[in-house]
Computed example of a mutant assay.
Amino acid sequence: MPKLLPVLGLALLALASGPSGAHAQSADLVLCDRIAADPSDPDKPSDIKGVTEIAPADIPTAIRFCKQAAGAARRALFELGRAYAANKQMAEAIAAWRRAADKGSTSAMVELGVLYATGAGMTKDEAQARKLFERAAEAGNPRGVSNLAALGGSGTSSADPARARDLLAKAAETNPEAQYQLGLMLAEGKGGPQDDVAARAMFEKAAGQNHPGALERMGAFAEQGRGGAKDRDLAKSYYQRAADLGDQDAKKALKRLECPFVLKDKRGNLVSNLCF
């Protein structure tokens, strides 16, 4: 396993840093975090960036070490669920997320809520999705707040987009995911007036903490001149940083910037991009 050695080195360094560090987290948990942590997970250690998608080559390693660490930390259970989902083992992913949610993982609650809301991998149940999003939102998870607002309809006051803005604004003081989610609401005019300047400020704040989605949005805002100056070079820089972190929309945007002209057939379907 070519990727295992450098990651294992990091784990051994973490354990060698001192007795308290060794007791705090095992090598299995360090490895699990390094290759399977979600950037938006509130349980994620601050020194771990996380990955938007687990690299295909890392999936077997993630399953192995996250499974071994699952008894030590609820975030390892959540990350094990991510690894199973990446491997298209949805029954195992759901089981891991249920266990993590039972232990208080708000990220696992959100993932289960999304599955219930969409009917992916389980029977569609909007009421159950709402309960899970509410639990996550009440615990301060930004995705729980935004997903609850998106679900809309009847329910607690948290389902009100205006209320969601208030909750996100509080969390956005320190949390990059909340900054990103609040930026989206401001940009789209959900829960209050549209405000591109404020949205750009939120995206910029989250981008400063290497949030992939916020970096991509900053690229789009700079490219379009929304909420501030129009700057193609700056847009490209933001897109590149987001793409380096695995953001697929940013990768597409980079190609569009580099190859702005397209050839289409008679039906209007894309045939090829022209690069100059």
Rank of each mutant, 00 (worst) to 15 (best):
Arg74Asn: 15
Lys49Trp: 02
Ala137Met: 08
Met1Val: 12
Glu111Gly: 01
Asp196Met: 13
Gly50Asp: 09
Asp125Tyr: 13
Phe276Ile: 10
Ala27Gln: 02
Thr106Pro: 03
Lys190Tyr: 11
Met109Arg: 11
Leu257Asp: 04
Glu223Cys: 00
Gly268Ser: 12
Cys275Ala: 03
Gly192Gln: 08
Gln179Glu: 12
Arg82Pro: 02
Gln240Arg: 15
Ala164Arg: 02
Leu274Val: 14
Leu12Ser: 10
Ala93Leu: 06
Ala201Lys: 14
Asp166His: 15
Pro45Val: 12
Gln25Asn: 10
Ser105Ile: 09
Phe65Cys: 00
Gly189Met: 15
Gly268Val: 15
Ala222Cys: 03
His211Trp: 03
Arg82Lys: 13
Ala22Glu: 09
Thr174Tyr: 14
Leu148Cys: 05
Ala108Phe: 02
Gly121Val: 01
Gly119Thr: 03
Gly21Leu: 13
Thr118Gly: 08
Ala14Tyr: 06
Asp41Ser: 11
His211Cys: 05
Ala83Asp: 07
Arg64Lys: 14
Ala57Gly: 00
Ala85Leu: 05
Phe133Asp: 01
Pro60Cys: 07
Lys170Val: 11
Ala96Glu: 04
Arg267Gly: 14
Gly140Met: 06
Ala100Thr: 06
Met202Ser: 01
Gly50Leu: 09
Glu216Ile: 00
Gly104Pro: 05
Thr174Trp: 13
Val110Trp: 02
Ala108Ile: 00
Leu4Gly: 10
Ala37Thr: 15
Leu12Cys: 06
Gly225Trp: 00
Arg130Gln: 12
Ser17Tyr: 08
Lys205Cys: 07
Asp125Gln: 14
Arg256Cys: 10
Ser146Asn: 04
Ala11Pro: 01
Gly113Tyr: 05
Met202Phe: 10
Pro45Phe: 14
Ala85Ile: 09
Ala69Asn: 07
Lys264Cys: 06
Met122Asn: 03
Ala159Ser: 14
Ala83Asn: 11
Glu204Pro: 09
Arg241Trp: 08
Thr52Ser: 09
Pro2Cys: 02
Phe221Glu: 02
Gln181Leu: 10
Leu148Gln: 02
Asn147Ala: 00
Arg64Phe: 08
Val145Trp: 07
Arg135Asn: 14
Glu177His: 00
Ala76Asn: 08
Arg82Val: 03
Lys103Ala: 15
Leu80His: 06
Ser46Asn: 04
His211Leu: 05
Lys103Asp: 15
His211Ser: 04
Val7Trp: 11
Leu80Glu: 07
Arg135Met: 13
Arg135Tyr: 08
